[in-house]
């Protein structure tokens, strides 16, 4: 996706979000909630794609960042009672940003080990971080511990969900499609050569983690205010893996493909409901077959990552 597409996507999603949120009362609410899931998954997948796809780091802890954002935003909005729409909008945007910021802080913390680690080691460390975050929430009685936390306001609507998704897509695309952003790809392609060209790999990796974690946090906030109930168990390793599957299915470093994959993998379970118990088996087989037959992802048709 080039940057002009990203801008179009941004405006289009915002307009669509606005229109639909105005007309929301006419929609079947079940499908409406699924569209929120789609937007949330797009955010998660696109932000993880910056870390895993463009920068070549393998993070398996995205759900941990999501959890930080979800709990932060929920705790903030739970302080408020019923508000008029404008006040609610202000509080909600503040809460989402705060969730994103705290998640970004966690991303900074996780980014630090990337100074040293690569490949499979990094995967395990991020997995470990994700699990540690989960265990911490499990032990925080103030937010319900393992029982979970009720979220008072169901403020996530089409406008917020797609607005945030558009922002995430725009930010990642704008970052990557600049001379500055070629550094992410350079670090992925060849770290030694990149640093010999004056690129500070540590800086890029940490940036990728911080930006990726920020949007995972925002997605977590949206998730919390869509489901209105969150538990630490909802942000476990499996959740991280399912985001990874979206990135891999779409093609690492291919924003459009990753968006398509996020949409597909959110809708698929709805159609697979009759055979729900086979779903995860199907996912896992998909992953294995994809790696054997089409490691560049379903939606990447060029051999190279979407350069230019």
């Amino acid at each position: 996706m080039n940057i002009r597409h990203a801008k179009t996507f941004l405006l289009g999603a915002l307009a669509l979000g606005f229109l639909v949120s105005v007309a929301a009362s006419h929609f079947n609410s079940y499908w409406l909630f699924i569209t929120y899931d789609i937007a949330i998954n797009v955010i998660l997948a696109v932000s993880l794609n910056l870390i895993n796809g463009y920068t070549g780091q393998f993070s398996l802890g995205h759900a941990g960042f999501m959890a930080v954002g979800a709990y932060t935003a929920a705790v903030i909005t739970n302080q408020f009672g019923d508000l008029n729409p404008f006040a609610a909008g202000a509080v909600f945007s503040g809460a989402l940003l705060a969730g994103g910021a705290l998640a970004a802080g966690a991303g900074l913390l996780v980014g630090i080990p990337t100074l040293r680690l690569r490949g499979d080691y990094l995967a395990i460390v991020t997995l470990g971080f994700g699990e540690i975050i989960r265990v911490i929430f499990q032990n925080m009685q103030g937010v319900g511990g393992a029982r979970g936390l009720s979220v008072a306001h169901g403020w996530t609507d089409f406008f917020w969900a797609f607005g945030a998704a558009a922002a995430a897509v725009y930010v990642v695309a704008a970052l990557v499609h600049s001379t500055y952003g070629r550094g992410f790809l350079a670090v992925r392609d060849d770290e030694v050569a990149a640093s010999a060209m004056g690129i500070n790999p540590v800086r890029y990796k940490v940036t990728a983690f911080v930006v990726g974690a920020f949007f995972a946090g925002v997605a977590g906030g949206l998730y919390a205010h869509s489901k209105q109930f969150i538990t630490p168990g909802g942000f476990n390793f499996m959740q991280s893996v399912s985001i990874v599957v979206m990135v891999i299915l779409g093609g690492m470093g291919n924003t459009v493909g990753v968006i398509l994959a996020a949409v597909l993998l959110t809708l698929l379970p709805e159609f697979l409901r009759p055979i729900a118990e086979y779903r995860m088996i199907l996912y896992s087989l998909l992953l294995v077959v994809l790696m054997l037959a089409r490691p560049q992802g379903l939606f990447t048709f060029r051999k190279q990552g979407d350069a230019k």
Binding site: S178, Y180, G181, G183, D189, A307
Partner: peptide, 26 residues
């Protein structure tokens, strides 16, 4: 070389060294 990039981008990546523009700018 940076294998996933074009000829142009390979050089562009290195040319950034003395143009300190970063995240905000992009």
């Amino acid at each position: 070389l940076f294998a996933s990039m074009t000829v142009f981008d390979n050089v562009r990546t290195a040319a950034r060294l003395h143009c300190p523009r970063g995240v905000r700018n992009a």
